[in-house]
């Protein structure tokens, strides 16, 4: 089955014209020498010809009129590159990168590099004092805002879905 499979594959490549020059010569030799290869080649070539010569399907006569009527109501959307402002994306990127850097710098500045108690960095990382920034009320306020935003988003999404269903119905 496997040799049969690779024979078919090689013959298809030969028919498609995608086989390498050396391979092409090799297949031509094989075709000259073996009836089995010639038989398979004829079979595949026949299928390939039938596939090429089969006719395209015709849509209904009104097809292009329907499309033209539909697009008459539309405007071409501006190209994506016109409304996606690279500077804004760059700005967001810079913001997050500087945030990461600030955290790292703060963290490293707190580390006691000279201390000999422990050598592993993870031990030292555990000792970084973040309580100045992440006290409980700050985290709570942050989470509250997130939950509120999440609810607004879900509401918006469900509303859209309902409208869509109504339209379909």
């Amino acid at each position: 089955m496997n040799t049969q499979h690779s024979m078919e594959e090689r013959l298809w490549e030969y028919i498609d014209g995608t086989s390498a020059a050396g391979e092409k010569q090799l297949i031509e030799d094989l075709l000259r020498q073996h009836a089995e290869w010639r038989e398979k080649y004829r079979e595949l070539l026949e299928l390939s010809e039938a596939l090429k010569s089969s006719e395209l399907e015709e849509p209904s006569l009104r097809f292009s009129k329907n499309v033209m009527e539909e697009i008459a109501k539309l405007h071409i959307a501006p190209a994506t590159k016109n409304y996606i402002n690279n500077k804004i994306i760059l700005g967001i990127g810079i913001f997050f990168i500087s945030l990461l850097l600030a955290i790292l710098v703060y963290g490293f500045s707190q580390m006691d590099w000279a201390s000999a108690e422990s050598n592993s960095i993870s031990d030292k990382l555990g000792k970084i004092d973040v309580s100045k920034f992440f006290n409980n009320s700050l985290i709570n306020v942050f989470m509250m805002i997130n939950v509120l935003l999440g609810l607004v988003l879900v509401d918006h999404y469900l509303n859209n879905k309902r409208k869509h269903f109504r339209k379909v119905a």
Partner: peptide
Amino acid sequence: IKAYKYLAD
């Protein structure tokens, strides 16, 4: 219709 709408892309 889609192709028309986004032709600028």
